[in-house]
Design a binder for these strands. Structure first.
Lengths: 224, 224
DNA sequence: CAACTAGGATAGTATTACTATCATTTTTGC
DNA sequence: GCAAAAATGATAGTAATACTATCCTAGTTG
């Protein structure tokens, strides 16, 4: 997977950045550094001043790449969903049975990412953790319609569409495939957050990944 | 329901406020005004300066009731979940069959609130809208453990426990009742948000409330 | 080698999130 | 009905944040 991945890049709408961070070493340091800092301090506590310092650059330079930290977060999420969609395509390639493909897809969406593929300057383990606690803040804003219009959620929607398509292959009459998939995706993040911070509103059984189990079981029971 | 409700108040942990807003006219205006303003502008754009102005008071006075706007949001959410829990208890009282109780509970958790019961200075329709777009921001923070420790999520957890209990009555061996209930609650908010802003990741069929249908169907298929 | 570009250094502005102080009004206890 | 206490208003001040602007220097490109 490594060598292929090296020659492959995830397309990000140029509306979320001022200058493509892939186009320079500084840009890549901004992305890498922002992931480290958000993972460390949380998105709210991130400032471009701190980020500049972290990567041995300045506030002003960071502003040349991203309009503000909201756009930077959109960039990271867009990368993540593009990456997930790409992983999904590989993960279900050449699997004959639609049911098997669905099972694999749900597994991919719900499993925690514990290993950095290190195929880029982006640490996917950290980015996955950021998704859990920060991704909802990216769309639960007053700007969501505008962000949506310029394509910030394109990969996210595409991924959901792709899995919905598999659901419809398994049962063409199931009426809520998109709702089911978006519930699984966001529900996974939420349950992982709860497991860590509010265990009383979730369930965690030893010897299994309860999040994967719950959502897989739920999906297969629901669609029939 | 009105007269009973008048003599009944929802208990809010005194750790989320500096001075009980129920204890004075100004306090109640702060609460009412904050709901109006958050509904209008969004939580992010709320400032205590604006809120003071809105209610014909001052920034400093608002600060005498709440340490900051995060605490104010916790207060509103705590009230909401206390109110929902209270409604739930009435809604399922004297219903014999556990399955019926569960059906009613899921209905209550997933239906939109369209009518202000006007049994207090709190507008429940607006508050419900605030829940949809802002509630997750209240716990997806770095402070969540501290907020949790001082009881900010007590009503929320109690409500989830209550519904989980009904699920276990219906099927005592179902292993993920809390996960299911919290998924339904938060999933409802998310799907309502998506319906308005990102329709491609949800499903909405005419002539029905698809959110209620989806989650009810999902719950009953899942627990067996 | 001239011109352009990227990035660094620094300073400045408006807004925000408070905190402090003091005057005034309202409430309460007697 | 009055003195003491509490609540609120008015105003000012501070530190941090989220930018914007300017200017300088080091590459890089043609």
């Amino acid at each position: 997977m490594n060598s292929l991945a090296n020659s492959l890049s995830i397309s990000i709408s140029d509306t979320v950045y001022l200058k493509d961070p892939e186009s320079s070493a500084l840009g890549r340091r901004i992305v890498t550094g922002s992931i480290d800092l958000i993972d460390d301090l949380g998105f709210e506590a991130l400032t471009f001043r701190k980020l500049g310092k972290e990567i041995g650059s300045t506030e002003a330079s960071v502003y040349r790449y991203f309009e503000n930290k909201h756009s930077l977060l959109l960039y990271l999420l867009m990368w993540y969903w593009g990456w997930m969609d790409y992983r999904l395509v590989f993960h279900i390639a050449n699997v004959e049975s639609a049911e098997d493909r669905l099972r694999r897809a749900v597994g991919l969406l719900t499993k925690e990412i514990v290993e950095d593929s290190s195929f880029s300057h982006i640490n996917e383990v950290k980015l996955n953790r950021i998704l859990v606690s920060e991704s909802m803040k990216a769309y639960l804003t007053r700007q969501v319609d505008q962000d949506n219009r310029v394509g910030a959620f394109a990969h996210y929607k595409q991924l959901i569409d792709r899995v919905s398509g598999i659901i419809l292959e398994v049962n063409p009459t199931y009426p809520y495939p998109h709702m089911l998939v978006s519930t699984i995706i966001e529900g996974t993040h939420l349950q992982r957050f709860f497991a860590e911070h509010m265990p009383r509103v979730t369930d965690n059984h030893e010897g299994e990944d309860s999040v994967v189990r719950f959502f897989t079981d739920m999906a297969f029971k629901t669609i029939f």
